[in-house]
Every structure is written in C-alpha cells, then in structure tokens.
Design a protein around this nucleic acid. Structure first.
Ligand SMILES: [Mn+2]
Ligand SMILES: [Mn+2]
Ligand SMILES: [Zn+2]
Ligand SMILES: [Zn+2]
Lengths: 132, 132
DNA sequence: ATATAAATTTAAACTAAATCTAAATTTAAA
DNA sequence: TTTAAATTTAGATTTAGTTTAAATTTATAT
C-alpha cells in the first residue's frame, strides 16, 4: 500500500504550476524553479508532475508537439491553440451535456474524462495578418 | 515554390494507413510495410506521414503516450480511448455547431480544426470487470 | 528515543520517437 | 540533353521522458 505524500519538492512544483497562467512545460517549470533558486533534481520534477497529475491536483495537456503542458486550473475546461503563434487559451464554454450522453450511448463506453482541443488563429494574429 | 508529389513510397505509406482500421503508429506502419516486403527507409516513412498530414490526406492523432497515430478516415470525427485496454474507437456523433460557434465567439479565434478525445472504459472491459 | 521499514530524492545512464544531415538518386524543367 | 529541384536513404542527432541504484528523508513500531 504505497503511501504518497505532497512532499516539499512536490509542493514547489505544484506552486509553480498553480501560479503559471500559460500552461508551462516540464522544461519551463525547471527553469522557473532555478530562477527562484529552488533546486530540484530533473527527475524529481517529472516524478512530481506525474504524482500531481495522478492525484488530480493538476492536469496534463497533450497539445501540439511531443511535450506535455501542465494546467493547475481546477475547473474543467477545454483549450484552443493558435496555429500561427502557438498561444494556448482557455475555453470555458462547456460542451452540451446532451452531446456527451449521445457519445456515451453511441460508443457504449463509460466516460471518465474528455480532452477537447480547438485550433485556429488568435485575435492578435488575425489582425497582424490583415495589415499585410 | 517547392513542388510536392504523391510519390511511390508515399503512396505505399498512404495505402497502409487507408487500409488500417486501428489508427496505426509510425512503427506499426513500418512493420506492415516490411511484412509486405515493401522496403521504405525509416526516415521516408516519417517524411511521408508528414507530407500526407500536411496535404490533408490523413490525420495525425495525439492520444495517450508520446507516439502519434494516423487515421485515413476522411470524415471529421472524434475518438474515444479505453483507459484500461487502450483501444481507440471512433466517435461519429458530431459536436453541436451551436457549441462551436459559441467557442469561436468566446475566444475570438478563427476556428480551423478540432481534436476531441474522450476517455472511458470500453464495453468489453466493463463486462470483464463485472466478472471479478 | 531507537530501530526498522517505506517512501522519496538524486545524478546519471538509458530509451523511444522523431528530426536532421549530407550524400546518392530520382524526377521534372529548360 | 543538361540542369535544377525534389526525394530517398542510412545514419547521426535531438528531445522528452523513464529507469536505475544509491543516498536520504520520512514514517512506523518497539
Ligand atoms: Mn487551461
Ligand atoms: Mn478515427
Ligand atoms: Zn496567435
Ligand atoms: Zn477496453
């Protein structure tokens, strides 16, 4: 019965994710820890992110590319990625429950989680493109 | 103006993806080519998959784990992954257009694409769990 | 308090997936 | 036919993340 705790290094990682507003990668988190002079071993950052994700304290996002991003936001929400500048914004409008139950019925699955990723061009990029 | 063609090796890769019904990975595709005696270099398979994806002939899926999967299905659709056996099923019920336009409005983005991933327990796994 | 066991951290080696390089080859254009 | 552009190839390289095994910290039992 492996016991698992929110230890000091895990708390450091957790704090970085909570304070971030930009869905940081593991590398981002390591950089920010270093910038604060809080030295945590490379592998410990990954261990901590895995722990925090498994405990449901944070969420792992697989958006573009191979690198995971982390999200400390509690409320369920989707994401939208700008295809031209890479920015990741929140999408707070929830999917209609009626659609979700239709999907559950169609698939026969017992749904436990969803990850919705939108892609498009962000307002800033749309404007700068018009100028050209 | 780089010209890009559906060359012979690219066609071989394309055929594998079209014929597959299981969202194969690059490694799966290499194995299947080998099994057919069609030798295509490692890097060429990746080049081909990138080409086919950029041309919109196939779709790249980032589901669980780090490895991309490929989908030759033309119609827009979502996916559902079994959290206990890893199977990937299709979800053909489309999201309500009304939700999509609300998301476009909320975010200010010009939407170009969506990737919806559901997670849950598949019918087979639910049954085998009941037996225990 | 002390001893013991379990959990966690650490640095470094390792792995897997994908990209990059530069030379060889094929295909298209002039 | 000559030249240029695109593509393929084998192998090296990169990147993100995991694994290993030893050292350390924390928890539990006496
Ligand atoms: Mn978010
Ligand atoms: Mn599919
Ligand atoms: Zn943008
Ligand atoms: Zn299953």
């Amino acid at each position: 019965m492996t016991k698992r705790n929110l230890t000091a290094p895990r708390k450091l990682v957790y704090d970085i994710v909570l304070q971030a507003d930009d869905h940081p990668t593991a590398a981002d988190i390591i950089d920010r820890l270093k910038a604060r002079g809080q030295s945590v071993a490379y592998a410990t950052v990954y261990n901590s992110l895995r722990y925090l994700t498994e405990e449901g304290l944070i969420h792992e996002l697989k958006l573009e590319g191979k690198t995971s991003r982390y999200d400390g936001r509690g409320e369920d929400h989707a994401h939208i990625v700008c295809v031209s500048c890479g920015k990741v914004d929140e999408v707070m409008t929830p999917p209609p429950a009626e659609w979700l139950s239709k999907v559950a019925e169609e698939s026969g699955y017992l749904l436990t989680e969803e990850q919705f990723i939108f892609k498009g061009e962000c307002p800033a990029c749309r404007i700068s493109k018009q100028k050209n």
